[in-house]
Nucleic acid binder design. Structure first.
Lengths: 96, 96
DNA sequence: AAATTAGGTTTATAATATAAACCGGTTTAT
DNA sequence: ATAAACCGGTTTATATTATAAACCTAATTT
């Protein structure tokens, strides 16, 4: 009847982060912060969870002298996202 | 960019309850319990929240000698649900 | 009449989200 | 050249939330 809603994705901020990363080759921390409007601490925590789950990969580097961390969604992350969207549709009345 | 996800609806069980109630004239407790597979305590708590918010109405009565409580979604509940679905679409890549 | 079941509600606990406080380094102003 | 402010984060404390266990009252079954 109702499909299981992956709790890792069923979170406003984590879903927002995944939504950004699925539509873009890669994104850095600042980009994510600006797009989501969330606080840095919150983003940091949620990104860690997505990373632990293997949904995104994290690459720490530099832009000039400053640190810059970029994030990319993984295959596993894409799969999980798609599955989540599919599960959601069992709750909404979206056709298909 | 991303729309606000009403936290009252962004909950697996409450969303399931609302999803049931939006597609049916009314439903009783047992029906909701069976359809969602959730425990009675959890359902009771979540229904109370939806009721407090004015999203559903509760009618306690009897079926023969046994108690039977039925639930109906309100206009306000329908509106909130639709708005929630719309907000969700800003996160997913559902066309329209 | 004791035990079980039904339909819930209340309460305790575990999990979660979120912001505040912090940290190492860099840039800017004095 | 030193202090102050800023940048990109991380850690940690707190508040909120979800969830199941325990419970209650009445009805049914044994």
């Amino acid at each position: 009847m109702f499909k299981y809603l992956n709790p890792l994705l069923h979170s406003e901020l984590r879903l927002g982060i995944m939504s950004i990363l699925i539509s873009v080759e890669e994104a850095d921390f600042v980009f994510i912060r600006e797009r989501t409007g969330a606080t840095a601490g919150n983003i940091s925590v949620q990104i860690e969870k997505l990373s632990e789950a293997g949904y995104i990969e994290v690459e720490k580097g530099f832009a000039g002298k400053r640190t810059r961390t970029v994030y990319r969604i993984t295959e596993k992350g894409v799969g999980a996202f798609e599955e989540y969207v599919d599960a959601l549709k069992s709750y909404l009345n979206i056709n298909q």
